[in-house]
């Protein structure tokens, strides 16, 4: 059973009690089939990812880190923004425009900030986290990490989030759990966050030295090395034990009728 906060479509934001095995969800005094529910994006704040926070990302770059145009290992966390036009809820289609054939499925843990975090220490950082959600950092493959990749990461619908937020207290060890990327229901990638360059407390602490994280903001773990590719017709997803599953179909943009694009 998962006890979470969610925004069921057509109903007020609510606490929900989810039983994935039994395909049931309870909210607002009702019990309905989970598979019949639509979920809007459960968060209201800004959404940030981080680059170069997986050891393997750095290993893959090797000495390129020190060469032009990069010019050395960055001293501060390298962040990027998923803009509001990218946010979609569980189940909503991800539109692919004509110039995009395949995208990376960016399975990630979303960390929801509970109160304003500015200049916090590593030791106290996790006290600023109120919950967790799933984020799919849909990304067009791109080789250069030099400039911000708006074309690759900020297209409409390129950031499914949800289905819900689980309170931090319910998942004390979530940062050491396995993150799964799904394509058409199959697990195609599985990785852990054991080997981050900056584990979550350090990431929050370092970022907060010059950047105030606001309540409702989401910090996610970034595009993992080896993220799988998928294309139109595939259903892509993210799963983490205790958080459930976030799945969205990839659809050609011209095939979406009346959808949010």
């Amino acid at each position: 059973m998962i006890n979470a906060f969610a925004r069921p479509r057509g109903a007020p934001p609510a606490e929900v009690l989810v039983d994935i095995e039994a395909d049931r969800v309870q909210f607002g005094g009702r019990s309905v089939a989970l598979s019949s529910c639509h979920w809007d994006v459960p968060v209201k704040g800004a959404v940030y990812g981080t680059l170069l926070n997986f050891r393997q990302e750095l290993d893959a770059l090797g000495d390129k880190v020190n060469q032009p145009p990069y010019g050395g290992m960055p001293s501060a966390p390298v962040m990027y923004l998923k803009t509001p036009n990218t946010f979609i809820g569980h189940g909503a289609p991800i539109p692919l425009s004509a110039d995009v054939t395949q995208v990376l499925v960016g399975a990630a843990l979303g960390v929801v900030i509970g109160r304003a975090a500015s200049r916090v220490s590593e030791q106290e950082a996790m006290q600023y986290v109120s919950g967790y959600t799933l984020v799919n950092d849909i990304t067009v493959p791109h080789d250069s990490l030099f400039r911000q990749p708006l074309h690759a990461k900020n297209r409409d619908g390129f950031c499914p989030i949800g289905p819900w937020i689980v309170p931090a207290g319910a998942l004390p060890n979530v940062a050491s759990s396995r993150i799964q990327a799904l394509i058409n229901g199959e697990v195609v990638q599985e990785f852990s966050l054991d080997d981050l360059v900056r584990p979550l407390p350090q990431l929050i602490a370092d970022l907060s030295q010059f950047f105030t994280l606001q309540p409702g903001d989401v910090l996610f773990t970034g595009l993992s090395p080896g993220a799988p590719l998928a294309g139109a017709g595939d259903i892509v997803g993210v799963a983490i034990q205790g958080l459930g599953k976030l799945e969205n179909p990839l659809v050609r943009e011209q095939d979406i009728v009346g959808g949010r694009s």
């Binding site: 990069y70 010019g71 960055p74 501060a76 390298v78 962040m79 030099f146 911000q148 010059f210 950047f211």
Partner: peptide
């Protein structure tokens, strides 16, 4: 710095 620049800092 040289990644996803201009970087947040």
């Amino acid at each position: 710095e040289g990644f996803y620049r201009p970087n947040f800092k």
